[in-house]
Amino acid sequence: MDETGKELVLALYDYQEKSPREVTMKKGDILTLLNSTNKDSWKVEVKITVNGKTYERQGFVPAAYVKKL
């Protein structure tokens, strides 16, 4: 869990989004878990840094590609 009590997951593999509802992640990324009720895909939040500014983006990733921490 992070400092706000949200559950975290670790990306086990790289994943490139295939639709606007998904998010891209790299192996080793730590993501905030938002919903894990679907056995196939979990909703997560990723933090992306562009030019020194951090943005948050929500979307789905394959459940088999992440592990709860």
Rank of each mutant, 00 (worst) to 15 (best):
N38C: 11
E7T: 14
T32E: 07
N38G: 09
Y13V: 12
E56Y: 15
V61M: 02
E17Q: 13
Y15T: 01
P20G: 08
G59T: 02
K47C: 12
L12P: 01
E7F: 11
L34C: 07
L12G: 00
L69T: 05
A64C: 15
S41L: 15
N38Y: 08
L12T: 04
K53Q: 13
K39Q: 11
T4P: 12
Q58R: 10
G28M: 02
K53N: 11
D14C: 08
D2P: 13
K18A: 10
K68S: 06
N51K: 07
T37C: 14
P62F: 09
L31A: 07
D40Q: 09
N51P: 02
W42A: 00
T54Q: 11
T32M: 10
K68Q: 07
V50S: 09
S41P: 02
K26W: 07
Y65W: 05
D2F: 13
F60Y: 15
S19T: 12
K47F: 09
Y15N: 01
W42L: 02
G28D: 04
P20N: 10
Y13T: 08
I30L: 08
Y13L: 09
T37G: 09
R57N: 04
P20S: 11
V46R: 08
Y13N: 08
E17W: 06
A64N: 11
K26E: 04
N38R: 09
K6I: 11
N35A: 08
Y65N: 05
E3K: 13
T4D: 12
G28W: 05
K6S: 10
L69M: 09
V44D: 00
A63D: 03
I48Y: 14
I48C: 12
E7K: 10
V61K: 03
I48M: 10
D14H: 05
S41F: 15
A64W: 10
K27L: 04
L10R: 08
G52P: 00
K53L: 13
V23I: 14
V23K: 00
D29R: 01
M1G: 13
V61E: 00
V9A: 08
L31Q: 01
T49E: 10
E17T: 08
P20H: 09
L8G: 03
D29A: 06
S19G: 11
Y55A: 07
V23R: 00
V66C: 11
L12C: 12
N35W: 05
M1F: 13
D40C: 14
L34S: 00
E45T: 10
E17F: 06
T24Y: 03
E3F: 14
E45L: 15
R57Q: 06
G28Y: 03
T49P: 03
K39S: 10
A11G: 01
P62N: 05
L12K: 03
K68G: 04
Q58F: 05
V9T: 01
E45A: 15
K53P: 01
A64Y: 08
T32I: 15
E17K: 12
P20T: 09
G52Y: 03
L31V: 05
T54C: 13
Q58E: 08
L8Y: 15
K67N: 05
A11V: 10
D29P: 00
G52K: 02
N35C: 13
E45G: 13
Y13F: 12
K27H: 04
F60D: 03
K43I: 14
T24F: 04
